[in-house]
Design a binder for these strands. Structure first.
Length: 488
DNA sequence: TCTCATT
């Protein structure tokens, strides 16, 4: 069986790797010399049982033509595609590779997976069947509360009696130090479940703060949520592109968070609306995609993400992430995404189904909604920045009963303008008022918003009550009628 | 304490 993960197979790998092209139907791929025009047989054929491989840890400066030679050594390539971001075209650092022959894929995996590190990468190349190739049942475990000294082998030993382990990885920081957790992938769900039953909480590793954690690893959805939550924080700190790019930038940051942060990092100004955009994405994803997901950032504790305006100007810059030092705005390369039209900071996208099931899609839609409601003037961030938004607070006006909202747990830096922005998507806001401490001029973190009709107010409550911004969650409810407080 | 990315 072709799975190989760590070093012990070294010795055998090269022997296997050199097996000559051979045996089963792989002649297929070789005999497609020129046929008469129009004959479909000119297309390279692959085995019906060919395996699509996922190739990871590819330097971003290598494209298909650079990679081919590396992989052709193991057989004829049917298809090799570097993954790119659909809008930015940015190389994602990974690829899909299908050989004509199944055997070639196995050989390549044996010879390459985790066996060498491409230039500029700090982790070894990954060559393994793509996710799409496996029946995606849950069989991967997250193991937490390990001792930081424990190695892959230690973890294997701990887990091997419950089934056959396909993969075992200790999570490590950039310095190579264990983060005290690991992934263990079994060949079946049942094995994984057995390991959970037997091991979760069963013991406490020396030096660990609590007992061993063994649970199914996050699904992709959960990971997306997790990232967006992290991003909500980061966008609060680094800011402006979220505005400059509008929905596009927000999307790109989900996809290319680190890279974009590098280009965004210079700003250092906190825009409450950037935080809001991020938070809205997170919210949409949460309410639509994964009701059971924890809402609070899992980093927890004393360092709330984002929403910390007074400190942000000290962010060091320029910032480089993975050697990436900047990225032009999408408009700048002469190739704006075909799907997006930029007009005064408002971004129009093709209609998308509001019922899309993908949480990211949902989040994206949410941001579009936000972006669409966002005044063009404020989108001109270069002028607005770094000053507060040029929203002129209007005279305090109450709407009819049922139209006035009380909002609590506002971010400290939200003013009347941000409050209004936040509720514009739900209707005609006739007034917005954040209460301010007279002595300090600081927001008291609550305020009122009035709409001109009760439907808008209800829609706003529906969407915004419980809405998470940073560590806080908004409380949005109907304002009590003036006389409601009176005993009689 | 949830990787490094999965068309």
């Amino acid at each position: 069986m072709a799975t190989l993960t760590n070093g012990q197979v070294d010795g055998t790998v090269h022997g296997v790797g050199v097996v000559s092209a051979s045996t089963n139907g792989l002649v297929n791929g070789l005999n497609h010399s020129h046929s008469p025009a129009g004959c479909p047989a000119t297309i390279p054929m692959k085995d019906h049982d060919a395996i699509k491989l996922f190739i990871g840890q590819i330097p971003r400066n290598l494209d298909e033509k650079d990679l081919r030679p590396l992989f052709e050594e193991f057989g004829k390539i049917y298809e090799l595609t570097v993954l790119k971001d659909r809008f930015t075209g940015m190389h994602k650092g990974c690829a899909f590779l299908t050989y004509c022959a199944r055997e070639s894929a196995l050989k390549a995996q044996n010879a390459l997976h985790e066996q060498k590190t491409l230039p500029g990468m700090n982790r070894p190349i990954q060559v393994k069947p793509a996710d799409s190739e496996s029946r995606g049942e849950d069989r991967k475990l997250f193991v937490g509360m390990l001792n930081k000294q424990q190695s892959e082998d230690d973890v294997r030993r701990l887990f091997e009696s419950f089934g056959s382990i396909e993969e075992c990885t200790i999570l490590r920081g950039p310095d190579g130090n264990s983060k005290g957790c690991a992934f263990v992938k079994y060949s079946s769900h049942a094995e994984a479940q057995a390991a959970i039953s037997a091991l979760h909480g069963s013991q406490t590793m020396p030096g660990a703060s609590s007992s061993l954690v063994v649970k199914f690893a996050d699904t992709d959805k959960e990971r997306t949520i997790r990232r967006m939550q992290q991003m909500a924080g980061q966008m609060g700190i680094f800011n402006p592109m979220a505005l400059q790019f509008g929905a596009y930038g927000a999307y790109a940051q989900v996809q290319q968070q680190a890279a974009l942060m590098a280009s965004v990092g210079q700003g250092g100004y906190l825009s409450p609306m950037a935080a809001f955009a991020a938070a809205q994405m997170q919210h949409m994803a949460t309410i639509n995609g994964l009701p059971g997901a924890p809402l609070t950032p899992t980093s927890g504790g004393s360092t709330p993400p984002g929403i910390s305006a007074p400190t942000v100007t000290s962010i060091p810059s320029p910032i480089s992430v993975n050697g990436f030092t900047g990225m032009p705005p999408p408009q700048a390369n002469g190739q704006p995404p075909a799907e997006a039209v930029f007009t005064n900071g408002i971004h129009h996208y093709p209609a998308q189904s509001p019922t899309a099931a993908d949480p990211l899609q949902q989040a994206y839609t949410g941001v579009q909604q936000y972006a669409a409601a966002y005044p063009a003037a404020y989108g001109q961030i270069s002028q607005a920045f770094p000053h507060p938004p040029p929203i002129i607070p209007q005279q305090q006006r109450e709407g009819p009963e049922g139209c006035n909202l009380f909002i609590y747990h506002l971010p400290q830096e939200f003013g009347d303008g941000e409050l209004m922005q936040m509720f514009l998507p739900f209707g005609n806001v006739i007034s917005s008022k954040v209460f301010v401490d007279r002595a300090t001029n600081q927001s008291k973190c609550f305020g009122f918003v009035s709409f001109d009709n009760p439907g808008s107010a209800q829609a706003a409550i529906q969407s915004m009550n419980g809405f998470q911004i940073g560590m806080k969650r908004l409380k949005v409810q109907l304002k009590r009628p003036k006389d409601a407080n009176r005993p009689y």
